[in-house]
Nucleic acid binder design. Structure first.
Lengths: 337, 337
DNA sequence: AGGATCACCGTAATCGTTTACAGAAAGGCG
DNA sequence: CGCCTTTCTGTAAACGATTACGGTGATCCT
């Protein structure tokens, strides 16, 4: 595993200067003879250009970072799956950061942009603090934030519309005749938690249903915590006929708890989730879910970042991806092929 | 967004040489007074060291690449989730490569090590060709391969033991009284496909059961393809009383097909899978599955790579992670809490 | 006092590339 | 033949850090 050849090695073997080597390798106009000599020397030596040296000179790393709380979350995963090919096609590598939703960690990532190991960053903060906004605006490289930030923040922003999303789901449940619709949410100090909490109350009002706090339970955005919250909810409001879950992991927990309690889904209790993760279609009964366009948001984020990387000084843009209700057996009982 | 400060900027402001700045920032012994001046200049300027320049000189990037076919596959995902924190704790960033199981793409990644943008690589080739082995041995940076490579290949290697794994599952099914045990596999030219095919035949022999080719069907390692294969299998061998699936995605497809066909699981047909993905515990009936230790393999790979990064010239090592049968309702019918 | 020792610091080389600039070779023209 | 273009090539200076080496004072010893 000797040290690999450099343009100097090639220059010596080909009997030309390193400048000529560089020119040939970059396709700049050069005399035919020189081109041949350089190319064959490079070939024989198995030359591969050193990307670190190139980056130092060019000030571009061809790397982009993606920072989310936990790659295990299917929503973030769906985003990575979209982001990766878009970046790859544009010649960028993807550097992954898992922050565990830790604010200090997220700020670290933002400050780390100063190290210039990436050309840009796509980030999904679960909570958005003042510190975040400061760090984002001071960032030394382009940033795209997925998840709403306050209007006026000078950063490219991809938003889901969970307000409309919750509304779609509740309309659907209401149209099926459900009137006692419970709501299981994640922490209220998170971006999605607060948005969906407000949306639930609004949607009830729009439907002319009363807000009953016995119908609301808060856990966390995971299956186990969701299941526990659903258990508590069932105990407090045994007469409910539907459960709106703030995400699909919670909804999966709900299915399990309802089954153990002998409640049939959807005959006794209809269940709806949000995010439309892959698993939603794979369980039985298949889960009715509001797609917030995870894949589209990922792709949009990647494209927005690429656009800015090619065009540094444009105004920040906000892209909102519309939600879409995907109806399956957990509300209608009907098999979806 | 002006160009950030460099040690030169700091040196000017502090009225010292760049060498002194570097020494102070690296904690080398320096006069108290100089230290103060440099640190306060750095502080005022918001200095962040340029990792590219540092890498050029130090010949270390503090990055490690992970290459797999598709991050959407829960098995690879489980590995990433283990690998990431181990690397992070050691100060390495993770660069993700999705190769779509394309051989040319995988070879590209291996050759790309010559660009020196990472210090090492963890790779899971789905098929292992001669070209792979050549490229691995010629690689310009340490490589760890997850998935068996031929004995004697000079590379760190993490193996699952799917032979024993299949054996565990078939023993279990046999002990439950099942005698007509179908097998749904993925492509035979893949590493896991061929290993599991051989293992199935061996296990039958060991149990004294005949090998009936009507009980074997080949599809692919995904849910939809698995479901299709299970349909074909049911048509050809309607009398089967158990199905061994070469991975859990296929098994999930099997559950769906069996349900649509009105076969009860496990009363009519028991189902077992492999990999023990998260989802296996989340569906109903929960899936009995052979854990091949995805998480352990990921962690072992990361640790092996770190070890080699600290200690370049040791002999290649082979680590085999033992399988473990996780029994759930899809074979026993019993609720697992 | 003069030399040796020591702590600290600055100059310059280095990592591997790209690229501005100037020099050299070659061709065209008067 | 001399001069001007044109085309190609080599020298050297970046990029931003680390670090070997030698120089400068100060301190210590005889």
């Amino acid at each position: 595993m000797s040290d690999g050849p450099t343009i100097t090695t090639i220059a010596e073997r080909a009997g030309v200067s390193i400048a000529s080597v560089s020119r040939v390798l970059n396709g700049l106009p050069t005399r035919e003879n020189t081109v041949r000599r350089v190319l064959s020397a490079a070939e024989e030596l198995g030359y591969v250009p050193n990307s670190v040296a190139r980056s130092l000179k060019s000030r571009r790393t061809n790397q982009v970072a993606f920072a989310m709380a936990d790659i295990g979350n299917p929503v973030y995963l769906a985003m990575v799956r979209e982001i990766q090919p878009v970046l790859k096609a544009a010649g960028y590598r993807l550097v992954l950061h898992s922050t565990d939703a830790d604010v200090a960690d997220e700020i670290d990532v933002l400050r780390g942009l100063g190290e210039r190991y990436v050309d840009g960053l796509i980030m999904i903060p679960l909570r958005v603090s003042e510190a975040h906004l400061k760090a984002v605006e001071a960032a030394r490289a382009p940033v795209v934030i997925i998840g709403s930030v306050p209007d006026g923040t000078r950063v490219d922003n991809i938003r889901a519309d969970s307000r409309t999303g919750v509304r779609l789901a509740l309309d659907h449940l209401h149209s099926l005749g459900r009137r006692r619709i419970g709501f299981v949410n994640g922490p209220l100090d998170t971006v999605p938690g607060s948005a969906r909490s407000i949306a639930y109350a609004e949607a009830l009002t729009a439907l002319g249903l009363p807000y009953d706090e016995n119908l609301v339970e808060i856990g966390d955005f995971y299956r186990a915590e969701g299941a526990a919250a659903v258990s508590r909810l069932l105990a407090r409001a045994p007469d409910l006929d539907a459960i709106m879950c703030a995400n699909d992991l919670i909804a999966l927990g709900a299915l399990e708890v309802l089954r153990r309690n002998g409640r049939r889904v959807p005959e006794d209790v209809a269940v709806a989730g949000m995010d439309d993760i892959d698993m939603a279609a794979a369980v039985w009964p298949a889960l009715t879910s509001v797609s917030l366009g995870s894949a589209e948001r990922g792709r949009a984020a990647a494209e927005l970042l690429l656009d800015r990387l090619g065009n540094g000084e444009r105004e920040p843009r906000v892209v909102t991806v519309p939600p879409r209700l995907v109806v399956r057996a957990s509300t209608t009982g009907e098999e979806t092929p």
